[in-house]
Design a protein around this nucleic acid. Structure first.
Lengths: 207, 207, 207, 207
DNA sequence: TATGAATGAGAGTTCATTCAT
DNA sequence: TATGAATGAACTCTCATTCAT
């Protein structure tokens, strides 16, 4: 798996350079969300960042690297949020764990929802570009692990299949909710019903 | 592919043009699925279609129109399939109807799955370009209508929310299955478990 | 000097073909005046003429020939008008001849003034394309001849120079009047003053 | 009135850029005069300027802007010349003023006569493109004003019409002389006779 | 190091012209 | 002969990237 090293041309040691890199990434995110991928030219990004095009290329060898770095940054923000909250879920009863996970996912996708959408929908999936997918894959693993750990209590026998079904369901509901439903984060009914979907599927005698 | 000469009866003059349009649309689909949206230049498409760039522009005023036409064609294929099979579902008991719908959706998304993905993921969502979305919207309506019709028998009280949750779930499972699971179409377990997800969510006492 | 023969590919013998050629030339004039030279594509002209592009090229080997033929037609219309009226001028006293000439020129330029402008202003002056210029040159000769014939009565000694000055003056006034002054044709003052310009220049003691 | 700002895309800060803009404008003038408007493609102009096509478009957003900028530059050269010499004319007796004006116009049109012709004859008159016309309009105003100021001494009563006639006459003579008569500028007889045309028209008892 | 002028391959598109039917 | 589908060179313009200052 790649790290920042093959993406960023030179690890900036000085604070100023660090700030420049940040400015460029932020500008990229802004231009991307505001104007879409096609309008996001390197010159437009540099201008928005208040930086010369030359400087941009000092830190990112090509446009692809720039977008990849932004993906990474975005992912790390989401991942940090999820990882932090997942540990606490471990001991909880299944129903509570499911509710907590759903809420966490909603919160994670709410970080920069528009950027998330652009990254998923518009950025061309070039070689090994499935970076944003990593978050999803991490979530798959989380859920799989948890199902295995509690397999005794569960109705489905094929846990691989159950995981597949649940992950894609919850994922899709989360994405759609963040984008289409204004107050998704504070929508208790949404969380409850999504939890019901999951729990009624998993348990023979749902609560 | 057949040319005018293989066909016995003399074809009207428009036949040649019709064939050209077909060739261009097919080439568009091929280039799109094989090389992605960015690589799908009008010249590449014309070359693949074995047609001059001028001919392409004789039938499509600009690149966007070309992709839109392809979307329409693809959608019509999917829609035709769904519409045809949905009528039969009406009288069935809920559990059978759900299973039938899932199977139909899988079959519909299987028409040209790679093209479907490219159309959904990569084609820039320019002004009113959400054409492929129409199929999804049609499905939403189908499901909504069916839920209303059977609301007496259902556990959820907020049917709008229930519809939202189910549509996005089944949609996502269908998409992912077609793309990630070879043989999804003939995978009984997948259908059964997806049906279980839906039915257990909808019914207080699932079968 | 060229005749229609090197321009028109085949001399149409049948009335229908003759009508087609006319339709094409008329369409050319219309498109030219309504949309300008840049928009006047051969396909647009053929469509306007209600004729296939193939037919257009049956009668005109290339676009240039088409425009040249139109120039010729337009010129012949103007020339016919002028020639016809000039004979009568011969015997008149100078002041009457000048007035008559000015009126004739105004009338001649009024035949299709917009087409005239487009032909003069927009049609690229490619090799030997100065066709419309021929009318002007004919007028120069007319005036020169007349001046020579009456040189005794005239103030200027250098008649070549006097011709140059008068032709360009009257020409410019005529052009500008037709295009900028509605009703130029019926504007007595305009004719009178233009005549005054010429006569006062030519005669030592103007009337 | 427009300034360079809406025409030039980015105002060049470095001397190098300034030189590039100059080179492009000069090349435009050259290609235009040597090969005409149709042959003046942006690539041909860039090549002639010894500059990449990209550089051309860095400074001019489109071809039209390029030609407009050239018009402006040309006009400013002419205008500067005229404005400068006109002040001195004010106090002179009419006959001297007319002679001075004619000489000034000849000199002004002599700046880049071929370019002037191409600009007037071939450049398509797109929206607000009558830029070169502005010089002419300035001249109209000059002459009108002068006629008004001296109206007591003049024969014609309708000064609007007199202006119309004189402006177009002198304009046409000037244009034609510069283009057709090699030594127009030093041709005393030409100036004298043109002055005669004007003065004899204006004064009841010409000198 | 930071700047921004310069580059040029290549994209979308047009249109005079040809040619099979 | 008339048709109009097909052609492709050439045009305008963009944008990722380089490089002199």
């Amino acid at each position: 798996m790649s790290t920042a090293t093959d993406i960023v041309r030179k690890l900036p040691k000085q604070a100023r350079a660090q700030a420049t890199v940040e400015a460029i990434l932020t500008a990229t995110a802004e231009v991307l969300t505001e104007q879409g991928y096609e309008a996001a030219t390197t010159n437009a990004i540099a201008r928005r960042a208040g930086v010369s095009i030359g400087s941009l290329y000092q830190y990112f060898p090509h446009k692809e690297a720039l977008v990849m770095a932004l993906c990474d940054r975005h992912m790390q923000q989401m991942t940090a949020l999820i990882i932090g909250e997942v540990a606490a879920m471990r001991g909880l009863p299944l129903s509570d764990a499911v509710r907590a996970l759903i809420r966490t996912l909603l919160r994670a996708h709410n970080v920069e929802p528009k950027l998330h959408r652009v990254l998923i929908e518009q950025v061309p999936r070039v070689a090994g570009f499935e970076r944003i997918g990593q978050v999803d894959r991490m979530i798959v693993e989380l859920i799989r692990g948890e199902l295995e750990r509690r397999r005794e209590a569960l109705r489905p026998s094929n846990l691989e299949l159950a995981g597949f079904i649940l992950v894609h369901s919850v994922q899709a509901i989360t994405h759609a909710a963040i984008l289409d439903r204004p107050d998704a984060l504070r929508d208790e009914a949404l969380c409850e019903e999504t939890a019901a979907l999951v729990l009624r599927y998993l348990l023979t005698d749902p609560p």
